[in-house]
């Protein structure tokens, strides 16, 4: 059957090459879309993880009351970290961050900063809920959490995921249509062969087998070509991005390529096999 499929590919070389090239391009675009989508999701995730809620205590709140707020905050659930920051620590950080202003506290009558509580939430979508709960707690004067930034990051993440899925679905759909049509043409070019097979008593499996294997081989060849192109392109682009845009959190090749290639190969084989099956159906039931 494998020999028949290989012979079929040889006989219809041009058609097979056209189908394989088309599928390879579609798979490359789908694989590229997956990689870009994964990187954007990673970027969004990184930004999300950096967003935190800060609650500022009134100046008269004693440490024991602050500890109670900390305990209540942890008890809310959904937080990944919660720590109390004394006004002295806050001032030290300020001086560290703005070194040119290191001498400013010396001219002030005292430390003007309040004690605070810093909270990181496990799921960024719950940040608003945690902030409101913190605001309602005894002794908390104000809460800051960069609502707009968080909301935009969450919206961006969702948009990236949805757009990635839609783009991939569209491209896979296009690839399937192209493959079905090219395989249908290949089958049409060999309809006499199929007719003779059926008339001399070849079993349906024998008639379909070589065509299905052909589709599978074309899918595998296309996936292989797309694998080489995608891997090479990602290695080059990721290295360049790391060098010229160090603040951009680009996924390491080992973290994204295995999944992208698994998707690409699955699509290639399924589309090759499925395309052959659909292409054959018309002639074998006609």
């Amino acid at each position: 059957m494998l020999a028949d499929a290989a012979a079929g590919l040889r006989r219809n070389g041009l058609m097979a090459a056209a189908a394989t090239t088309t599928m390879a391009l579609a798979l490359l675009v789908a694989g590229g879309g997956f990689v870009v989508s994964a990187n954007l999701a990673h970027l969004a995730g990184t930004l999300e993880a950096q967003v935190e809620v800060v609650g500022f205590f009134r100046r008269d709140v004693p440490p024991a009351a602050q500890e109670r707020v900390l305990a209540q905050t942890v008890a809310l659930g959904g937080t990944s970290a919660a720590t109390l920051v004394t006004r002295a620590e806050a001032l030290r950080r300020l001086q560290q961050t703005y070194r040119s202003m290191a001498s400013v506290p010396a001219v002030l009558p005292g430390n003007p900063l309040p004690d605070s509580i810093e909270v990181r939430v496990a799921d960024p979508r719950r940040i608003r809920e945690v902030a409101e709960a913190l605001r309602a707690m005894e002794g908390v004067e104000d809460v800051v959490y960069g609502a707009a930034v968080v909301d935009r990051v969450i919206a961006l993440t969702r948009a990236v995921r949805v757009a990635g899925l839609v783009a991939t679905a569209l491209l896979v759909g296009c690839a399937l249509v192209i493959i079905v049509n090219t395989i249908r043409l290949a089958v049409a070019a060999r309809r006499q062969e199929i007719e003779i097979m059926a008339l001399v008593g070849a079993s349906p499996g024998f008639v379909r087998g070589p065509f299905l294997v052909e589709g599978l081989l074309q899918g595998a060849a296309a996936a292989l070509a797309a694998t080489v192109a995608l891997t090479a392109a990602y290695l080059v682009l990721a290295a360049r991005a790391a060098a010229s845009l160090p603040f951009l959190p680009v996924l390491a090749p080992g973290a994204v390529l295995p999944a992208a290639l698994a998707v690409l190969w699955s699509l290639g084989l399924v589309v090759g096999l499925g395309g052959s099956e659909i292409g054959l159906r018309r002639y074998l039931t006609a």
Binding site: R11, Q192, E193, E195, I196, A198, L199, V200, G201, A202, S203, P204
Partner: peptide, 23 residues
């Protein structure tokens, strides 16, 4: 339908238009 190929293997068919594979 599955038994049709077995029947056809006991028949030889000659066509007016030959139906030979040209390649």
């Amino acid at each position: 339908a599955a038994a049709v190929p077995r029947l056809r293997r006991r028949l030889g068919v000659v066509f007016q238009e030959f139906k030979l594979l040209p390649d």
